[in-house]
Design a protein around this nucleic acid. Structure first.
Lengths: 185, 185
DNA sequence: GATCACATGTAAGAAGTTACATGATTCT
DNA sequence: AGAATCATGTAACTTCTTACATGTGATC
């Protein structure tokens, strides 16, 4: 199920930021962007034309993206490219501090941010991202574990198992963050 | 970001099934249902009135839920309750075979199904659910691992780390399914 | 008597889904 | 020439979000 909030004018949907991130690596056609969502494991988002093209339109309307004529494009074909405002919007999103709630409920969006984080030069940003991610994941993990301790003999077995799924999931988050921090020395 | 597909008349949104599942445990007011989403870790869904009440309305319109007058309700207050069609719709959803794509992209919905699965008497259904879940998770895990082997020296470090996050996540799914299968002997 | 918690709704707007449509290029 | 891929769009529909609105019963 996917989304539709009444959103303040200047904030984008996750898909919007994903498009900005992809365009940051160089101009691309809408079709090429669709292919990325279709063929890579990044494809949490729908690649259907009815999703992508309107999304690009919205970015254009906000002045974050512009059409590059075939003549001005490196590949010789028409393509979309980031404007300076688009580059800034992407950077602001990437640098946004991460809240506990984000780790708990929106981990996929954070992972998307992480992928594009290498586009932001400052390596300390990446470290801070991972440290915050680790801290929040560990904190929620503790909460779930103490919840299990408290309710384990009062709730149906299936509910307990579902809770334990959450515990495994956040343990995996923490494990990964530790691993990533080692790689980011 | 949340959802809005053009959905065949007879199929429900995940929130719809969540409501059916909660009502299966007994009649409840809309307010009580909201509280569940607000206070339990099941609360992936918004608990705002603008979300819940229209959702209940849609269930009523489909004949899956009906209003219980205060006099007929066990608590002495007006409440909503499942109709027979609602009970059937819930059971069909719970018994639906699980596809690999569901494990890959819609694990939260599957976990929700699992929580309500104890409402379906047949224990073999639970076993089949867990076996399929485990199989698909393990299969996707292998795919990700072999992808890592193939691309590890060709993609940016952050992309590789994101891929490894996926690997940790599906390893956790598999670990959990093994654990749950043991408990479901 | 005032302030919570209970209880239920509506209105405006955004964004996604499916399905339909169209045309240009490139491959076979 | 016909098929597949490239490429871009629109229309109808659904559901969600935020914010506003209203009233009742219990508690302090």
């Amino acid at each position: 199920m996917s989304a539709a909030k009444a959103r303040p004018r200047n904030v984008l949907t996750t898909l919007g930021y994903a498009l900005l991130g992809l365009l940051r690596q160089g101009p691309a056609s809408g079709y090429a962007l669709r292919k990325v969502f279709e063929t890579t494991p990044m494809g949490v988002y729908s690649s259907s034309p009815g999703t992508i093209y309107p999304a690009i339109r919205r970015l254009q309307a906000k002045g974050l993206v512009h059409r590059l004529p075939a003549s001005a494009s490196p590949t010789g074909k028409a393509a979309f490219a980031l404007t300076e405002a688009g580059t800034n919007a992407l950077r602001d999103w990437l640098r946004r501090p991460i809240a506990r709630e984000d780790v708990v409920r929106k981990a996929p969006e954070l992972l998307l941010r992480f992928v594009f984080l290498h586009l932001v030069e400052d390596a300390s940003i990446t470290r801070r991202f991972l440290e915050d991610f680790r801290r929040h994941a560990a904190s929620y993990l503790e909460e779930l574990e103490s919840l299990r301790g408290a309710v384990s003999d009062q709730i149906p077995r299936h509910s307990l198992l579902a809770l334990e799924h959450g515990i495994e999931a956040f343990r995996a988050h923490r494990t990964w963050a530790d691993h990533a921090l080692l790689q980011t020395e």
